[in-house]
Simulated scan of single mutants.
Amino acid sequence: MLTLNADAHPLMNRMHKPDPKVGRDEQDKRSVVPIERGDVDQWLEGTMK
C-alpha cells in the first residue's frame, strides 16, 4: 500500500483523531495514494527521480 503524510492536506488531515499520548509534532497522519491500474508496472519497476 502506497501512503503519504497527510498532515498538510486540507481534507485528509481530518481523518485521524490525535493520539493524546503522543506530542502533536510526533504524530503522522497517513493517507492512501491511489494510482491508476496502468501505472502499476511503472510504480513497481520505475526509477527514482
Rank of each mutant, 00 (worst) to 15 (best):
Q42W: 08
M1S: 12
N13L: 00
E36T: 02
V40T: 06
Q42H: 13
D7K: 11
A8R: 14
E45F: 04
M15A: 07
E45T: 04
R30W: 02
V40W: 05
P20F: 12
E26P: 04
N5H: 08
D19I: 04
R37T: 00
G23N: 06
P34N: 02
K29M: 03
T47Q: 15
Q42C: 02
V22M: 13
A8I: 06
E26N: 14
R14A: 06
W43T: 11
A6W: 04
A8S: 13
P18A: 14
D41Y: 03
D7C: 02
E36Q: 07
V33K: 05
D39Q: 13
M1Q: 13
G46L: 04
L44P: 02
R14I: 00
L11S: 06
L4G: 07
N13F: 03
K49I: 08
V33E: 01
R24A: 15
K17N: 09
E26W: 11
M15P: 00
T47G: 14
M15T: 05
G38N: 07
P10S: 08
D25K: 11
H16L: 12
V22F: 14
P18G: 11
A8K: 15
Q42A: 11
T3E: 14
G46H: 03
E36A: 08
M1Y: 09
V22A: 07
L2I: 15
L44M: 09
S31P: 00
L44I: 03
N13S: 15
R30V: 01
M12E: 01
G46S: 08
V40N: 07
E45H: 06
P18D: 15
Q42G: 10
D25V: 04
L2G: 12
